[in-house]
Design a protein around this nucleic acid. Sequence first.
DNA 1: TCAACAGTCTATAATCGATATAGATTTTTT
DNA 2: AAAAAATCTATATCGATTATAGACTGTTGA
Lengths: 145, 145
Amino acid sequence: MISKKAKYAIHALVKLAREKDKGPILISEISKEGNIPKKFLEAILLDLKRAGILNSKKGKGGGYYLIKDPEEVNMADVLRLFDGALALLPCVTYKYYERCEECTDELTCGIRRVMQQVRDETVRILKDATLANVLATEGTALDNF
Amino acid sequence: MISKKAKYAIHALVKLAREKDKGPILISEISKEGNIPKKFLEAILLDLKRAGILNSKKGKGGGYYLIKDPEEVNMADVLRLFDGALALLPCVTYKYYERCEECTDELTCGIRRVMQQVRDETVRILKDATLANVLATEGTALDNF
DNA sequence: TCAACAGTCTATAATCGATATAGATTTTTT
DNA sequence: AAAAAATCTATATCGATTATAGACTGTTGA
């Protein structure tokens, strides 16, 4: 499960991408619309600003807005920003690598191999899921149920 | 990331499957070999016993042993047993379903669709990763690095 | 039948991170 | 100057994860 922080971040990003033309959007608007605690959301949006995805404007007519192209922002990066590694085990991550105490030989570990596969598929799908892609599929019904 | 509990459980199961012929194996042996806190491991093995995967024998010559066929025990079931849902969002789980507060229409939600895909792939890979399969690939070097 | 062995049960502790809230401050606009 | 809105600092809460201790039960073999 991803954290609420990450979930709120994704929700906010999708909204900001969807309403890209409307100019800056208020924290309070995003907060109300998504039932997201305002103060909590503030911190999240600041993180996204520091990450270079959003920018903000103070004072009247201010708010947050997307500065990256919706095709350049993908779910993998956003999840990594808030929740750290995407992998199920530390031994199959790049940035958060940690050796398993239980493991005798990592290169031939059967468990690691499975987790490696899961990670690869997960990253592939999430990298492909850009804000642009998410918006594009929005509103159309699912093929398989 | 999966919990240590789940990681320890998988490690113990793989060991028990690997040494299936040797008869009951001591908690203390699994604990030492894997640097797993003994008391913590006890609880884990009990859970696996309650789940019908292992059985145990008390007294001298006792210990834990696999009672399910190694082909019948897969990583998806084990992870679900200890960590709950495999999905990244509550709205794409079966047993732990919960509606997202932020979501207006779940059926057409673009975020949900992506998470659905990740879940499907993850479940597919983990279901396929039985103890038998994990053991079979063990010891052979990886193709891609 | 007793002693050693090894798993089982109950209870509790220590941490730690995720989630959330409050209030003062800074910047911008009108 | 006043209002609007984001930013900063700090604190609180809560629950789950991880771990430990000790008493108890059942089994084996001498």
